[in-house]
Write a protein that binds this DNA or RNA. Structure first.
Length: 492
RNA sequence: GUCCCCAUCGUCUAGCCAGGUCCAGGACACAGGCCUUUCACGCCUGCGACAGGGGUUCGAAUCCCCUUGGGGACGCCA
């Protein structure tokens, strides 16, 4: 592969980074990594009305969190406006563009008319037919004008090969003379975007299929400007369960990257999930390490058909696409504990139960405890919710668990404190010894094993579920176990 | 309305370009089972799709056409 591949992600900062954008960014990033090329981040902030600094920060934060690092930028499109205007001037001089004096009102009226008659809504070319004298006259009158690209009327077509959509052909007659500069002199997206891509020497444009309709127009601009064409790859769109394009407006937080960060996702797990939405290997492999994904990624694996992001926003069990959860859960269970620990640390810090010793004297204990717990967790946040009792004395007793495992068995009211005594008298706190003591007590009192075991679990963790009891007690430590068992009587 | 794109299990998809090995494979979800002190994990089994119709062919999920369905673009937004 050639080393001068240059790809870009060019979001407009009108809101947080959403899953669709992140997915597009990920494909670009992957392609750059794969080819040893450069990944450029360009913020298309020319819509001053809608662009905000918060959104810029949100996008940058989201990209960083996902680990999608860029090689150049972020550059801001608003800084390049001169270049765009310059390009338009060139186009005007070469005769590839012309001035249009039609007012917005006239245009709106014509469009409305066309809508009413169910006709063509495209520009009718009125000003294209103006003679130089007429143009001069209108200019002399001080009438403001937009600049339109003069689409060839030679009966030809724009033809190009898209890496995912295949060969595409659009007849010139089907493209209207589109506006490239507003009447106030400000360039428009089709122009700005193309000129920036030319200036940034972008070789591969990997973007959503919603950009497909713009492509023939932009190719016309490239051609008129004499710039070499990049390779295009228009990726499928991400739809919601009703098959509509996902948007911030409609779906709110559940499509925001930061939402997943807040809900305890491992960033790479989320990238892994996102990439699979419209891309696959011929083996349908599901889990990829970073290096493996980079190695196996190719534009050819991109699916043409749109894919559905199965947001289950209203489903109490899932809250988002079950597959995303499943992949996250897989990473939590299988990634090296040392790599998981930093993510758990973040949760601890924000909950205020982080202990610096977890990275020092208690590091071994901390790592082995999260290793013990992670088997049944899906999110990093689970460590501070479901797992809180292992790290803090300030934990909740679940009512259901207390009812089922403690209150139903009156005998535990005395057995538990008794067990505390026995544990307390132990020299160490080994698994074998703990089991022997508990088994003996079960025998002695003639209760079912599960009664004591589940009762102890609830008494020391407040929950009805969790790791195997012996491992659990060791993880908790003798001191905490004895203390909590002693207090168990008070729960009745 | 005009132009463009797409179409395999509920969801993500493999297979399609180079037709037979596909009564269609994997993953998630779901159901059942095993394991088990709980809940998970893990393992096993099951449920479940080539949108419809025409062609071409000895043979079509794969090629062609039509229909239907879905999506996108059509803005002096990006």
């Amino acid at each position: 592969m050639s080393n001068d591949v240059r790809v870009r992600f060019a979001p407009s900062p009108t809101g947080y980074l959403h899953v669709g954008g992140a997915r597009t960014a990920a494909y670009n990033w992957l392609y750059a990594k794969k080819t040893g090329g450069k990944f450029i981040l360009r913020i298309e902030d020319t819509d001053a009305e809608r662009s905000t600094d918060d959104a810029i920060k949100g996008i940058l934060d989201g990209m960083e969190w996902l680990g999608l690092d860029w090689d150049e930028g972020p550059s801001f499109q608003s800084k390049n406006i001169e270049n765009h205007v310059e390009a338009a001037k060139k186009l005007l001089e070469s005769g590839d563009a012309y001035k249009c004096f039609c007012t917005k009102e006239e245009l709106d009226a014509k469009r409305e008319e066309a809508t009413k008659n169910k006709g063509d809504m495209r520009y009718d070319g009125t000003c294209r037919r103006l003679s130089p004298e007429q143009v001069a006259e209108k200019e002399a009158q001080g009438i403001s004008y937009t600049v339109r690209l003069k689409v060839p009327d030679d009966g030809g077509a724009v033809k190009f090969k898209d890496e995912v959509c295949g060969f595409i052909e659009k007849r010139h007659e089907d493209i209207e003379d589109f506006i490239i500069v507003r009447s106030n002199g400000q360039p428009l997206y089709v122009l700005s975007n193309a000129v920036d891509d030319i200036n940034d020497r972008i070789t591969h444009i990997i973007r959503g299929q919603d950009g497909l309709a713009n492509t023939p127009k932009q190719i016309l601009i490239y051609n008129a400007l004499g710039a070499p064409l990049p390779v295009f790859a228009h990726i499928s769109l991400t739809l919601d369960t009703k098959k509509a394009k996902i948007s911030k407006r409609k779906h709110g937080e559940s499509v925001a990257v930061h939402f997943y960060r807040e809900h305890g996702f491992i960033p790479w797990a989320f990238v892994n999930f996102l990439v699979l939405l419209g891309w696959s290997t011929s083996e349908s492999q599901q889990i990829f390490s970073r290096d493996e994904l980079i190695e196996k990624f190719s534009l050819g694996g991109l699916n043409k058909a749109n894919s559905v992001f199965d947001i289950r926003a209203d489903d109490p069990k899932f809250f988002t696409d079950p597959k995303a959860i499943s992949i996250n859960s897989h990473y939590i269970k299988n990634m090296p504990v040392e790599e998981l620990a930093p993510y758990v640390k973040i949760e601890f810090e924000s909950t205020g139960i982080w202990d610096a010793d977890y990275e020092g004297a208690k590091k071994e204990w901390f790592n082995s405890t999260i290793d013990l717990l992670r088997e049944r967790y899906h999110y990093t946040t689970d460590f501070v919710t479901l797992g809180k009792a292992f790290f803090s004395d300030d934990f909740e007793f679940e009512e259901k668990a207390v009812n089922k495992n403690l209150l139903k068995n009156e005998i535990l009211k005395t057995m538990l404190p008794e067990l505390a005594e026995k544990f307390s008298a132990m020299e160490g706190f080994g698994e074998k010894e703990i089991e022997d003591i508990m088994r003996a007590m079960i025998e002695e009192q003639g209760v079912k094993a599960g009664v004591l075991i589940n009762g102890v679990r609830t008494a020391v963790t407040g929950q009805a579920v969790g790791p195997g009891i012996f491992e659990l007690l060791i993880a908790l430590g003798k001191e905490r176990v004895v203390e909590r068992l002693k207090k168990a009587g008070a729960l009745y």
